[in-house]
Structures are given as structure tokens and as C-alpha cells.
Design a protein around this nucleic acid. Structure first.
Length: 475
RNA sequence: CGGGGUGUAGCGCAGUCCGGUCAGCGCACCUGCUUUGGGAGCAGGGGGUCGGGGGUUCAAAUCCCCCCACCCCGACCA
């Protein structure tokens, strides 16, 4: 392990890759574009999965599992969908040593195969709504993979719901967007802009895509979750109809929504610093690392006993005790800082003698001496404080990297600049959007629905605008 | 697919121009002893198809030809 990380300011991309390696989140796999998620990285993902899964279940969703392989013909049924995904699909052409009658697509997303099943399962309005989520791996043959952000294979959840009315589908789409926003802000400690995508940026086959967008420390925006209102596009293509209360037949209204292992990349890039990861307490695999300090055997016995008592006061906290003998203290401090553990507790003979422990925050580096008898309570408080402060810092950072622009020249200059969100009016014309994409490094990330609707003039073409949109350079 | 790189020990690299004690260094690893409040020290030790194939030569990591893989920048994108 090299001594120091590349500084974020020197080369953010190198910093990102080094953090992932040194924090042991993931390793490059022998398979092109794929990564191995290592135990520490997977523990982080598992905590994210647990919280999201709970939130989905609390809102009436259930989990199921559909096949990895999807018949090619399914993709052909929805025109936009096939056009959007075909270029990035892996295709199975042989099985059992023979060429297949029909190619099988390795799923890039599961709308089609799930729609096919929904057509069989849904007969009546009484079967609705159908609220299913699946945790799965998907494959997208991206041209330029990056660990967590864009890997050929990635893990995610994909929700697929069917409803009796357009209104219910829209409600569901927004309900999920709100879950994603809540998860991003309250768990990942990343403030997000949220709202609909433009037509150019929406999911292939959707009526409307909503997204949450976070700001990374290099000034680029990261799409962290999407919720799609599919309308009847898939139900018409797959014949998912049902009998209404009054006996007529109608196609169902669907939604789909997903959040992926990309969000691990968001946590890395939104909070990490030059010393490594900084993990939000609510998701950190270890919330506290305890480092016993002892020289002699006698000291070790005393310290070990003190650590045991200390652990009893940390009931309900995810604690890791680092009692490895082969590493010195400095090495351990550095390692857990690199891994972003929110709190470090040092306990040695000097501390025990004075009835206290040293507690150090990862996010600020602040050190305090805490009486052993109140350690449990203090740690609990600190974890909440760190969680809150991390969100606040990320919000302050985002605001410092956000600017409102009205004039074309300054808009173009800023959109070719060093990042951040640009709040600007847009006329709504796709041609104008395309021209901006052509001339600048920015794209419209979303139309934040939480901003007040104020009319104005498009920052690029000057045409009339109903509201401001959020531009940024995107990952 | 365009442009630029890199393949030598687990990781990071030197050596390649100019063929010949070049199979080397640092970290990691193993053994032993001493250490331990911010990446410990000493001693000893193990580990290699030099990306692959072919060619030139008395001799190839080094020169020539072909191939492969990976990384970075762009287009595509969760």
C-alpha cells in the first residue's frame, strides 16, 4: 500500500480509483468492465440494500425474481426501448453447444420480461395495483466503464408496478422518487435536486422519467436514482389488460424505478477527502472502530477487559475492534481513516487510568476525551451529529457550486467551465437542448420540481421559459 | 470506433534507445528477535513463461513482424 493518496485537487479521477483500491471497496475483475465488490464494499452496499428494501416494503412492495436472460423478441415489442438498449446488450447466441433458435439478451433492465409475466397475472382491477421489486444484477455493455459508476455488470433494485389508472401510476412514480430523495439525503447524506428529465434524457419507453441528481466534489453531477412513469407503452406492447369495475377492458398503467451500486460511487465522491473515504454513520459497515493500545502483557489484559466493558455500553452500534498485533497504531489509524469509519475510539492504559477514552471524528478530525461511563451515549450522539453535519457540508458545498445565470455568454462560459450546477431558464425546445449539449459540456440534469416556477427567457436562445432547469456536467 | 499510453514478482516500478553477470529495486509476504499513544527496527528467507506467438542472432526483456489484454481522453450511458 502506497503511503499517500493522490490529492483530489491534483487528479480527482486518480483519487477516486485509489480510494476504491485502498479502502478495499472493489477490485478490477479479469472480465472487461467488471469489478469485484470486496467484502468492505459489499457490506456498505448491504446496508444500503437493507434500508431501501425496508422503505419499499413499508410502502407495500414485495420482492420477486425474474430471469437474467430475456428472449430477443421481447425487446422488439417496444420501439423506443429496443432502440435505447440494443446497442448495449450482451447477447447469448449459443447454449448447450448449439446455436439457439432465438437469441437471448442478458438483461440490461427487466421491463419486457416482467411485462410478459404481468400479462399473464393481471386479469382484473382486483389484481391491481401490482407492486413488485427485484434485487438483481444487470448488464450494459458500456463503452467506458468506471468502478461503481458504470460497470458492465452492476447490482441494483428495479421496481415494476402496474396500476388501474394513470393517476395512480403517476402517484407511484412520485412516491418512489420521494423514497429515493429521502434515502439519498437522510442515509447517504447527499442533498439532491429532483424532478423530471427532459424528453431527450428520459428512459427509453417511458412517458416521463424523474431523477435525483447529486453534486460530487469535482463539480460533476451524478444521477443517483430514476423513477419512470411508463404509462401504457409496455402494457400495449405486451397486452397487459384488465377488466375494470364496470366491465370494460383497459391496459394497465405502469411504473419502473431503479437505484444501483452507482450510489456507492456517489458516497465516495460526495464525501471523500484527501485521506480517503468518509462514510455516513447510518450506512457505514463499522460505525465505530475501537483501537486498544497496550505494550506489555499486563497492560494488554487490563485493556482487553476495559474494551469488553466498553463494548457493552455500545449496544446497537456497529463496532469493530482492531486488535491485530501485526500493525502499529499509526498504520491502524490511517487504514480506518482511509476506510471512512465515522468514529475512532482509542483506549489505552493512560485513558483507563483517567477513566476515559479518546474519541475522534473522521469527518472533522476533532478529538475529544469522553468518560467511560458516558461513552455509549456520547457515541450515539456523535454518530447523529456526524450524519447531520455531513449532509450540511454536502449541501453547503453544492450551493457553493451552484449559480443562477440569465445571459447567454456567461451561460456558455460557465457550462464549459469547471463544473457545478447552473440554474437557468430553458425554452423547452429539444433542438435548443441539443445545441447546448453540442456547444457546452453541460446537459439538463433535471427540471427541479421543488423550485418555484418563475417565467423568464431561455439562457441560450432567449425564447420564453416557464421555469428554470438544472444544468451540469454529468457522470 | 477515433486519439494517447502501458504490459517485467501480489502491488508500484527501473532496465529496452545502444542485444552480452539484467532477472533487479521499493512495498507487500514468510521466519526469528526487539518494538507498540500517528504508516516500527534488525537479521534471515521465498517468490519470475519479462503479455502471447513467430523471426533475426553465438546470444533477445532489449531488434523485426503478427496478435492479445488493460488503462486514460472523447462519443454512448444507471
Amino acid at each position: 500500500m502506497a503511503k499517500k493518496l493522490t490529492a483530489q485537487a491534483d487528479d480527482f479521477s486518480a483519487w477516486y480509483n485509489e480510494v476504491i483500491a485502498k479502502a478495499e471497496l472493489a477490485d478490477n475483475a479479469p472480465t472487461r468492465g467488471c469489478m469485484v465488490i470486496r467484502p468492505y464494499g459489499f457490506a456498505l452496499w448491504e446496508n444500503m440494500v437493507a434500508e431501501l428494501d425496508r422503505m419499499f416494503k413499508d410502502t407495500g412492495h414485495v420482492n420477486a425474481y425474474f430471469p437474467l436472460l430475456i428472449p430477443d423478441s421481447f425487446f422488439q415489442k417496444e420501439a423506443e426501448h429496443v432502440e435505447g438498449f440494443s446497442p448495449e446488450c450482451a447477447v447469448v447466441t449459443h447454449g448447450g453447444g448449439k446455436k439457439l433458435e432465438e437469441n437471448l439478451m442478458v438483461r440490461p433492465t427487466s421491463e419486457t420480461i416482467i411485462a410478459d409475466m404481468y400479462a399473464r397475472w393481471i386479469q382484473s382491477y382486483r389484481d391491481l395495483p401490482l407492486l413488485i421489486n427485484q434485487w438483481a444484477n444487470v448488464f450494459r455493455w458500456e463503452l467506458r466503464p468506471r468502478a461503481f459508476l458504470r460497470t458492465t455488470e452492476f447490482l441494483w433494485q428495479e421496481g415494476h408496478t402496474a396500476h388501474a389508472t394513470a393517476e395512480e401510476a403517476e402517484e407511484e412514480t412520485l412516491r418512489i422518487l420521494d423514497i429515493y430523495r429521502t434515502f439519498a439525503e437522510d442515509y447517504m447524506a447527499i442533498p439532491v435536486l429532483y424532478g423530471p428529465k427532459t424528453d431527450a434524457e428520459k428512459f427509453p419507453g417511458a412517458l416521463q422519467t424523474y431523477a435525483i441528481e447529486g453534486m460530487m466534489k469535482d463539480g460533476k453531477a451524478l444521477q443517483m436514482g430514476t423513477s419512470h412513469n411508463l404509462g401504457q407503452n409496455f402494457s400495449r406492447a405486451f397486452n397487459i389488460d384488465f377488466q375494470t369495475r364496470d366491465g370494460s377492458r383497459e391496459y394497465v398503467y405502469q411504473t419502473s424505478w431503479g437505484m444501483s451500486t452507482r450510489t456507492v460511487g456517489a458516497i465516495i465522491m460526495a464525501h471523500g477527502d484527501d485521506r480517503g473515504l468518509v462514510l455516513p454513520p447510518r450506512l457505514a459497515p463499522h460505525q465505530v472502530v475501537v483501537i486498544p493500545i497496550a505494550k506489555s502483557d499486563e497492560e494488554q489484559a487490563v485493556v482487553r477487559e476495559a474494551v469488553d466493558r466498553l463494548l457493552e455500553t455500545l449496544e446497537g452500534v456497529r463496532v469493530k475492534v482492531d486488535d491485530r498485533e501485526q500493525f502499529g497504531l499509526g498504520w491502524k489509524f490511517t487504514e480506518w481513516e482511509t476506510k471512512g469509519v465515522p468514529l475512532r475510539v482509542e483506549l489505552g492504559p493512560r485513558d483507563i487510568a483517567s477513566g476515559q477514552a479518546v474519541v475522534v471524528r473522521r469527518d472533522t478530525g476533532e478529538k475529544e476525551f469522553v468518560p467511560l461511563e458516558s461513552l455509549g451515549g456520547r457515541v450515539g450522539d456523535l454518530l447523529q451529529t456526524v450524519q447531520r453535519d455531513m449532509f450540511q457540508r454536502a449541501l453547503t458545498f453544492r450551493e457553493s457550486r451552484s449559480q443562477e445565470i440569465q445571459e447567454r455568454d456567461s451561460f456558455v462560459t460557465a457550462a464549459n467551465g469547471d463544473g457545478g450546477f447552473i440554474h437557468a431558464h430553458w425554452c423547452g425546445d429539444p433542438a435548443c437542448e441539443a445545441a447546448i449539449k453540442e456547444e457546452t459540456r453541460n446537459t439538463i440534469r433535471c427540471v427541479p420540481m421543488h423550485w418555484d416556477a418563475v417565467t423568464g427567457a431561455c439562457a441560450y436562445c432567449g425564447g420564453p421559459s416557464e421555469r428554470m432547469v438544472a444544468y451540469a456536467q454529468a457522470y
